[in-house]
Amino acid sequence: MYVSTFHDVIEWTRALHEHLTRCLKHCSTQQEEERAKWLLEYLADHEEALKKIVAGFEKRADPKVLNTWLYDYLSYAPIKPHLSCSAPYAEMSFDEICQEVFDLHERIIGLYRYLEGRTEIPETRELIGELLKLEEHEAMRLFHQTNRSRDL
C-alpha cells in the first residue's frame, strides 16, 4: 500500500493489525506448545481489537485532516504488512513470538513518532499523537500481560 495521506496512514495501520490478526490465528491452530498457542490466540484477539479501534479513527477524524498529504514525511521506510507474517509463529517459542510482535509494534510507534515530529499542522499532529498514544499504551499493555503469563 502506498501511503500518501494521513488517511492512508490510518488505513495502513488498520490493515497491518488485520493481517497480523489473521496470521496469529492461523498459526495458533498449528502451534504445538500450549503456552505459545494461548499467546497466539490472545495476541490475535488483541490485534483484532486494535484493528477496530484504529478503524474508528477513520470515522471520527476531520476529513480535511485525513486528506492532508504527507509529502516528504515518508523518507521513513514504512513497514510492509506482509512482513508481520514472515516468521513462522507456529514454530516459534513463547519468547520469540513476544519479541516479534513487540518489535512490530515498536516499528509502528517509531513511524508515528517520526510523523508527529514532521507534521506542522496542529490538527494532523493531534491525530498522529492520538494514534501514537494508542499504540504505546497497547504495546505496554501487551508487554505487561505477556510478562504475567510467563509466571504461569
Rank of each mutant, 00 (worst) to 15 (best):
D95G: 05
P63C: 02
F6L: 15
E136Y: 07
H19F: 09
Y112S: 01
K52F: 14
L115M: 10
Q99H: 13
E33P: 04
L43W: 03
R60Q: 10
G110R: 03
E47D: 12
I108D: 05
K25C: 10
C23N: 03
I97M: 07
E11W: 08
H137D: 13
A87N: 05
E47G: 03
W12Y: 10
S86T: 10
F57T: 02
A77M: 13
A49L: 12
C85E: 11
L132N: 04
L142G: 15
A87I: 11
T13D: 05
M92W: 03
P81N: 13
K52S: 09
K133G: 07
P88V: 06
H137Y: 11
L132Y: 08
S149G: 07
Q31S: 08
L111N: 01
L111C: 09
Y76V: 10
K133W: 07
Q31H: 06
M1D: 03
H46A: 09
I109M: 08
F57I: 05
R125E: 11
L111K: 04
D8Q: 08
R141M: 14
F6H: 05
Q31R: 03
E18I: 02
L131F: 08
L134P: 00
M1K: 12
R14P: 01
L43Y: 05
T29E: 09
D103F: 12
R118M: 12
P78T: 13
T5V: 06
L111R: 05
S28G: 07
E116S: 09
W38G: 02
E33I: 09
A36H: 01
N67T: 08
L40E: 06
S86N: 14
D151T: 14
H46D: 13
C85W: 02
D151E: 15
P88W: 11
E123L: 09
A44I: 10
L134S: 04
V101H: 03
S93T: 14
L127M: 14
L16S: 10
A139T: 14
T124F: 00
R107K: 15
S149W: 11
E135W: 05
E91G: 02
E41H: 12
D72P: 03
I97K: 00
R60Y: 06
R141G: 03
L104H: 07
G129Q: 08
R113P: 01
H17C: 09
N147R: 15
L132G: 05
A90I: 00
V9T: 04
L142D: 12
E123P: 02
L24D: 04
L50C: 06
V3Q: 05
W12F: 12
R118L: 06
T124M: 06
L111S: 03
T13E: 04
Y2G: 14
F6E: 00
L39N: 06
E126P: 01
D72Y: 14
P88C: 07
F6R: 00
Q145V: 15
I108R: 02
L70M: 12
L39T: 08
E34H: 08
F94P: 04
R14N: 01
S75H: 13
A15W: 07
K52R: 15
L39M: 13
L39F: 11
K80T: 13
I10K: 00
C85S: 11
L24C: 06
H137L: 12
D103T: 15
L127E: 03
L50N: 05
D151A: 14
V9I: 12
C98F: 15
L115K: 01
